[in-house]
Simulated scan of single mutants.
Amino acid sequence: MLNKRTLSHARLNPPVLVMVAATAIIMTRGLDLFMVFDMMGVRGLRELIQRSAQTWPLTLVFLGSLFVLCIELRCAFVVMKGRNWGRWLFLITQILSSVYLMSASLGWGYPELFSLPGETPGDIFRALVTKKLPDVLVLFLLFIPPRSRLFFRVH
């Protein structure tokens, strides 16, 4: 049985797996941004922003990607506090981004920055699985271990 002392202790100390998952979200997003900045440079980023501002659909995709990034980072911090909605929102963002990446890579969306390499749908799916593997591991850490589930149930 959970008593009041156990509940207050659980609020103060999130399980290690939850902390690892939240830290992984923050670090992978930061590393992704760093790699994009390094790959494109200042000139490339300026061109991407100018190109994205030329049409409404491109602007919405660009702003949407920034919005999803902010939501994912917010989820990481909320998850550390034990808020159950944070892990579910992170799961939803991963499903939406996977669907968009797959559709953009198959030619049903744009821009090129948000597409995966591959000539066949199978190649694209393998690239998607490879790209999303860290996020799947994070979701595993947030949803599967009993200590993680208990931590979110208590809050």
Results as ranks from 00 to 15, higher is better:
A104F: 03
L73M: 12
L91E: 01
M102Q: 05
P111K: 02
S97W: 04
T93N: 03
G107N: 04
P117A: 01
L101R: 07
L63E: 04
Y100N: 11
L89I: 15
I92D: 04
L89C: 12
R51E: 05
E47N: 13
L106K: 03
L63D: 02
L45Y: 13
K81C: 08
Y110T: 14
G109A: 11
S103H: 01
V79Y: 03
L58T: 06
M40H: 10
T59D: 00
L58S: 10
G107A: 03
D38F: 05
V68I: 15
L101M: 12
G64C: 07
E47V: 08
S105R: 01
V79H: 03
S103K: 06
S65M: 11
I95S: 04
E112W: 09
E72S: 14
F67M: 11
I95Q: 07
L48C: 06
T59I: 03
K81R: 15
L73C: 07
Q94T: 00
S103G: 05
E72T: 10
L73H: 09
V42W: 14
M40V: 11
D38Q: 14
F67H: 09
S115D: 06
M39C: 03
L60V: 02
P117Q: 05
L89A: 14
L63Q: 05
F77L: 15
R87P: 03
S52W: 05
S115I: 01
V42G: 13
